[in-house]
Structures are given as structure tokens and as C-alpha cells.
């Protein structure tokens, strides 16, 4: 039925339909609410109740991680790549123009090679 109304049907044959997605989301939300209603009514926030259990160590003091420290492991793993990338991103105007001319010349060389192949 829904497939016959233009605009309401899925946009691909494999069937992504946003309305279906919203319906599924609503069902999941209802499930969450239902599960939550099973919880104990008399829960009180107290010491250590909602804290993370760090293998028996004393709970650490709260300190926030700065944004530039996020995903430290990722940057450590790809250190070589990022060093090269940052070396390219110099921020000098002359380099910007150099890269533009580089691309123009590459494109023109490719086109001229195409001409000689095609002719």
C-alpha cells in the first residue's frame, strides 16, 4: 500500500523507508519505557551507588579530559600519517597556489596523454 504513494515509499528497491524507521524507533522507545518501569522504585543516590567499579581501586577524583586529548590512541596509531598530513597543511599562501597549479598541470597532462592515445 505504502509503496504506491509517491514520496512515501522507500527511495531504493532494497527498502529504506523513513516511516518504517520511525515506527521501529517508537517500538524500541516503548520497550525501553516498559523495561524502565520494572526498576526499583525506591532507588536513592548515595555514595558509590552509581560509580564505576575500577577493579577494587579507590574511585578516582573527577577530572575532565580535554577535547584535544580525545582519541589519543587513534592518533598514536596513525602517527606517521598525521605527521605527513600536518607537514602538508602549512598554511602558506604560496603553497595553496602551488597545489592548485599542481592539480591543473596534472589534469592537463592526463588530458594530453588521453589525446595522444585517442588520436
Amino acid at each position: 500500500m505504502a509503496a504506491e504513494i509517491p514520496g512515501f515509499s522507500g527511495i531504493m528497491a532494497t527498502g529504506w523507508s523513513p516511516l518504517m524507521f520511525i515506527g521501529a524507533l517508537a517500538i524500541v522507545l516503548m520497550l525501553v519505557i516498559a523495561l524502565r518501569s520494572f526498576g526499583k522504585k525506591g532507588f536513592k543516590e548515595g555514595k558509590f551507588r552509581a560509580d564505576a567499579f575500577l577493579s577494587g581501586n579507590e574511585p578516582m577524583e573527577k577530572h575532565d579530559v580535554k577535547a584535544s586529548n580525545f582519541f589519543w590512541g587513534f592518533f598514536e596509531a596513525f602517527k606517521g600519517y598525521y605527521e605527513k598530513m600536518l607537514a602538508i597543511h602549512t598554511g602558506f599562501v604560496n603553497d595553496y597556489i602551488f597545489w592548485f597549479l599542481f592539480c591543473v598541470s596534472l589534469l592537463l597532462i592526463a588530458l594530453c596523454m588521453g589525446v595522444s592515445l585517442w588520436a
Partner: peptide, 10 residues
């Protein structure tokens, strides 16, 4: 000098 006064990079 555009290189000396550069502040934006990366």
C-alpha cells in the same frame, strides 16, 4: 611577509 604573519594552519 605572508609566511611570518601566518597564524592559521593545520
Amino acid at each position: 611577509d605572508s609566511e611570518k604573519s601566518r597564524r592559521l594552519k593545520g
